[in-house]
């Protein structure tokens, strides 16, 4: 047989350095998330495209128009993307931490590695999703390309960072509590209505404006709109506010992770 030269001596440390570890876990995350079906990773794009399609149909049936000088399809897609990215990031971080927890049996692999890998994978997905959906609409419906690509990417990044911040905290708590894990979709449900999919900040009036001004997801959506639609300026597009809101749960997640690891309060038996 077979035993290679390396087998004659034990490795001094049997764990890959952090970047290689994350790259491996990202690869595993990519392969496992949509493994099994024929369409595979295409589901990452089919789901949001279907959502956008349904909302466009709803607009058409109800006779609504885009409140900006833009096609209905591109307006809906730009409004939808931050919400989808935010939500998918949270969901995949929570699921990734649970589905890949067996990898923690390898000394040196940490819960934080699993969460970072999910977040990185979701960032890649987000950028591809943005390119595919917005590029596809531009090709199919002749929508104009983004006016300011950097600002558009900033909007996407804000939505992703919000997802990473809240997702990290919820993922750690989900490892402790099945109740919290099952509550995540319920917790996220209202964000659909406060993310600005159906309206712009300019359309909000009085107390509704005052309340929704505190929605970081609305800020992310408006930042993306500013980047996408030439001349559009929103009163609610503060990236620093989004960053602070994302940082709060992100920072909280670290002591929670310490409690999870040190007190061994995971709901799973490793």
């Amino acid at each position: 047989m077979v035993f290679s030269g390396a087998s004659t001596r034990a490795a001094r440390t049997n764990i890959a350095p952090w970047p290689a570890r994350i790259a491996t876990l990202v690869q595993r995350e990519r392969k496992t998330r949509f493994a099994g079906g024929r369409l595979g990773a295409l589901w990452a794009y089919i789901t949001p495209v279907t959502w956008v399609g349904f909302v466009v149909l709803f607009y058409r049936f109800t006779g609504r128009h885009a409140p900006l000088d833009a096609g209905l399809e591109i307006f809906v897609a730009v409004g939808f993307l931050p919400y989808i990215i935010f939500r998918q990031t949270i969901t995949s971080m929570s699921r990734g931490a649970i589905s890949n927890r067996a990898m923690l049996v390898i000394r040196g692999v940490r819960v934080g590695d699993l969460l970072t890998a999910s977040a990185v994978q979701e960032l890649i997905n987000s950028l591809v999703l943005m390119t595919v959906v917005l590029g596809g609409i531009s090709l199919l419906f002749g929508a104009r390309p983004p006016a300011d690509i950097a600002r558009a990417v900033e909007g996407i990044a804000c939505a992703w960072l919000l997802g990473v911040g809240l997702g990290r905290m919820l993922a750690v708590v989900s490892l402790m509590s099945d109740t919290i894990f099952r509550m995540i979709p319920i917790i996220l449900r209202p964000t659909f209505w406060i993310s600005g999919i159906f309206y712009t900040a300019h359309e909000l009036l009085g107390p509704i404006y005052d309340i929704l001004a505190w929605s970081p997801l609305l800020h992310a959506t408006e930042i993306l709109r500013e980047g996408y639609f030439l001349g559009y300026r929103s009163p609610l597009s503060d990236a620093r506010f989004v960053l602070v809101v994302a940082l709060v749960p992100y920072v909280i997640s670290f002591p929670l992770e310490m409690i999870l690891v040190r007190r061994d309060v995971s709901r799973y038996r490793s």
């Binding site: 035993f3 491996t24 876990l25 690869q27 595993r28 990898m103």
Partner: peptide, 17 residues
């Protein structure tokens, strides 16, 4: 390949065994 990536060895080494 994933186990090998985490252990920083080639997957061929594990695959051969």
């Amino acid at each position: 390949a994933h186990v090998a990536g985490l252990l920083h060895v080639t997957s061929g080494e594990i695959g051969a065994v």
